[in-house]
Each structure stands twice: as structure tokens, then as C-alpha cells.
């Protein structure tokens, strides 16, 4: 691994979009979305640890870094992530659901 020679910017040139009357809500939304991602990543990491423990009975950081899900595992992970997003953002769907029920 080499020393980073360049730092890529995180900010996009141009006005940041806002969708709510209060821009604080937009900031909160961004933070929550990132948190949701990090939680998903934490689940991924736990799952990886569990699988490695199951296989070897020994924890190794190198094993964790090198671990790549096989196709079947990736399909399962994809389904879990998909359902997870559905749960967290369910509030966005409820109005449509109610309209379809009525």
C-alpha cells in the first residue's frame, strides 16, 4: 500500500441541492443515509467474521480483508440489504400503500 499522493475532493462543484424548507432537514437526511450505509457495512463485517469463525475457529484480520463472498453468498447478501433498505425507509412508502388500500 503506497502513501496517498493526492486527496480527492468530496464536495461537488455547484450549489448543493435542498429539498426541504429547512436546509437542516436536508443535512439530517444526508447524515441518516450515510449512517444507514455504515450500519449495512457493519452487518457485512459481522457476517464475514461469523463465516470465518465458522470455517477456521480463528480470527485473522488478513482473512477478513481478503474475504470475497461467492456468488450464492452475494445473492443472499443482496437480498438482505434490499430488505433492510425497505424497512428503514418504509415511511416513504406508507402514503402510497394507504392510497392503494383505499
Amino acid at each position: 500500500m503506497s502513501e496517498k499522493s493526492v486527496h480527492l475532493p468530496l464536495r461537488s462543484k455547484g450549489k448543493r441541492a435542498t429539498f426541504y424548507k429547512d436546509p437542516a432537514v436536508d443535512q439530517l437526511f444526508a447524515i441518516i443515509t450515510m449512517l444507514t450505509q455504515e450500519l449495512s457495512v457493519a452487518f457485512d463485517r459481522i457476517e464475514t467474521v461469523e463465516r470465518i469463525l465458522d470455517k477456521n475457529g480463528v480470527i485473522s484480520r488478513a482473512d477478513i480483508e481478503a474475504y470475497k463472498p461467492d456468488e450464492q453468498e452475494e445473492t443472499e447478501r443482496t437480498q438482505r440489504r434490499d430488505e433492510y433498505i425497505g424497512r428503514i425507509f418504509n415511511i416513504l412508502r406508507q402514503e402510497a400503500e394507504a392510497l392503494l388500500d383505499s
Binding site: 441541492a17 429539498f19 436536508d26 443515509t33 450515510m34 416513504l92 402510497a96
Partner: peptide
């Protein structure tokens, strides 16, 4: 609200 929420999510993604 659906447009605000959907847009926020799409923008952040």
C-alpha cells in the same frame, strides 16, 4: 413529502 424524501435519497445515493 414523497418527492422530498425520494429526491433526498436519490441525491445522496
Amino acid at each position: 413529502p414523497v418527492f422530498e424524501g425520494w429526491s433526498s435519497l436519490r441525491y445522496n445515493a
